[in-house]
Amino acid sequence: MQQNEGMTLIVKTVTRISVWMILLYGIYIIFHGHLTPGGGFAGGVIVALAFLNVLLAYGRKFTSDWLNIGFLHDLEAASATLFLVIGILGISMGGAFLANFLTKGELFALISAGTILPLNIVIGIKVGMSLFLVVWVLAGFKIEKGD
């Protein structure tokens, strides 16, 4: 067996199938945060786990080819900025920071609860990217032993 990066073929194959399901489940949790238990943070963690699965199974090099780490970093910062922008829009349109300014929609429908859904989405992106990048950085970090 050749010395590939990452784990064995079995793990890689399983990951190749399961990573999309994990990602989808994370997105589901993010989008249904205002209706069922879950939300931006929990869903974001699951999204991060999907990426981490790839990192563990395929190794660092493959993941950095597959994902654009710089883009993920920008996405993380942009989502946090977007959260604040929604909050500030609340000041100008709803009267207070983070106040609701969208239609409340129909109860228990996907489009309901006003700004909570977009806020959940940006939190999901933020948490997902942050957690993945934290592990990414820690995994690549080498420290020289001091004297």
Binding site: G90, G95, A96, F97, L98, N100
Partner: peptide, 9 residues
């Protein structure tokens, strides 16, 4: 005086 601000109204 004391001023309060309710987040999210």
């Amino acid at each position: 005086e004391t001023i309060t601000y309710s987040m999210s109204a």
